[in-house]
Design a protein around this nucleic acid. Structure first.
Lengths: 147, 147
DNA sequence: ATAATTAAGGACAAAAATATCCTTTATTTT
DNA sequence: AAAATAAAGGATATTTTTGTCCTTAATTAT
């Protein structure tokens, strides 16, 4: 469904949401290991997600790393797709027609329509935080101890 | 959702289903033009779909071309995906985890599960013929006159 | 100030997907 | 039999995606 880059973006963001805070940032080494992705490639992706006040926050230098602000936690998962320039796939025609619409439907349009709507809804209404919480309920992560 | 190759495969197969018969075969030139795809690349894809008594039938030489047997018409759309080695995407984990399952769910598993099932059902239960008929109802094609 | 740490960014490499071209093979028509 | 037609198949080119490596910039600790 999505490119590897976007899969890594989703996995990384959710992992950061689960384990980091402004007081406890995560390094690229740990993140890539945890989500099982190539380190340097993942670094590029996090750069994208961090750029111009993006979804992920980052700080350089010792004690630095990546974290998610509580504001960012509340953003819909779709925002990650948008940064990765793949939010288009959600609304895209299954047969790849550029002009597929209600007025000019492709042969699969009627059959696929409902699923497409659910997909868009899912990514629009689900927040990063929700996924992080859901995941925590099932497989708790070692979170940093509070001071 | 699918690769270009698979999109072309779906479009081509549906077009052939709509316009061809054993008595009236279609050439690669016409098919590629009709579905707006690169000719030689599409030829490769049709080769795949034709190989070892596959979905599409073909005959070489004058009067030859591609067509769909009435038996092939009744096959599920999923068979096309299978030949293109992309039926995996239907059941795949959204986050790209290889071991995502009920027992070891990814953070999106619960949310995506229902959509995934619908997707599989759609491609499994919809036949090529159904799509061809649906499409004909909306935008009729110039079909060859019967003798 | 200097050294150490960590993300940012540029350049490059490898692999996969997409696309084209040319030759060969099968079939029909002349 | 020869010529013409149309798919099959091989070789190669182009583009995109994925991945690596090295240098630069920012920040902190010594």
């Amino acid at each position: 469904m999505f490119s590897k880059a976007t899969e890594y973006a989703l996995r990384a963001t959710i992992y950061i949401a689960r384990k980091s805070s402004e007081e406890n940032k995560l390094g690229i080494e740990e993140i890539a290991k945890a989500i099982n992705s190539p380190k340097s490639f993942t670094a590029k992706i996090l750069q994208k997600l961090t750029a111009n006040n993006g979804i992920i926050s980052s700080v350089r230098g010792p004690g630095g790393g990546f974290y998610l602000s509580s504001k960012a936690q509340k953003r819909p998962v779709r925002d990650i797709l948008h940064v990765m320039e793949e939010d288009g796939v959600l609304g895209k025609c299954v047969l790849g027609l550029k002009k597929c619409s209600e007025a000019m439907p492709c042969p699969m349009h009627a059959e696929y329509k409902g699923i497409k709507q659910q997909l868009i809804q899912l990514f629009e209404h689900t927040t990063i935080q929700q996924l992080a919480h859901d995941a925590d309920k099932i497989i708790p992560l070692n979170k940093p101890a509070r001071h």
